[in-house]
Design a protein around this nucleic acid. Sequence first.
DNA 1: CGCCCTGTTGGGGA
DNA 2: ATCCCCAACAGGGC
Length: 280
Amino acid sequence: MPELPEVETIRRQLAPHVEGRTLARVEILDARWTVARPPEDVVDAVEGRRVERLGRRGKYFIFELTDDVYLLVHLRMTGNLLLDPAPDTPYQRVIFTLDDGQVLRFCDPRRFGTGELALGPDGLAAFFDGKLGVEPLSDDFDGRALRAMAKNRRAPVKAFLLDQRHVAGVGNIYADEALHRAGIHPLRPAGQLTLTQCAALADAVKLVLAAGIDAGGSTIDDFRHPDGVSGAFQNDFLVHLRRGEPCHTCGTTVIKLVAAGRGTYVCESCQPRPRVRRRP
DNA sequence: CGCCCTGTTGGGGA
DNA sequence: ATCCCCAACAGGGC
């Protein structure tokens, strides 16, 4: 379940172990992992370089290597970065052997995850440019910014939220949580939101993401075990909406619909359905 | 047992 | 600007 809070949690757990370490050996077992270039080019570029910092942008890990070489790792739906897991851990796609003997393994049953290369600060900026919008936890993201971005957009607000070009890092689950908390129906056209609603939604996004990170941060060593992450983020605060269950705010039965091509859970009592405006 | 549907993401084509 | 399909695979329902 790698949404932003999960990526950030893994990053925090991993950083102390990989920062300052050199990528002594890199083995890319799945050629499709490196989308734009041949795996050997990526290996050549990163092998032997030191990890100066492990950063994050949206749902991307940024391995900041020496000489401004950047390895950008995305977990997509089922990817995971595991430090020193059991050697027979299944679905290994990439193996990073560090100079201190630790082994970082990228595992991904579905093989959607990616690792891409960016060279130089300009290359890094170019990679994210036009692809990722504002960081939701930064001060640049607030109701006013959201209102400005959403202006004249007719797409459903959930589709708008999931579009990483606007806000970087909101995924399907947290989008539902935030919309519910803000009392906004996922199918409401984004441009129709008032400034007050945009402020409530921005606050809700920040709150659910921060809560997710807090929940992840309270667990230890999940990054060493394949199934650690899956159950690590359940907590009392984030009650994920599920069809057929009562809304935890008002008790109304939660329904499921499709928005932005994704399964979407909504309490139509807390989140009133927008009026269907007929075309003239 | 097999078939069909769903899914935590994002890119590309219509 | 939007929408739909696809990538590859596991798991659940029927």
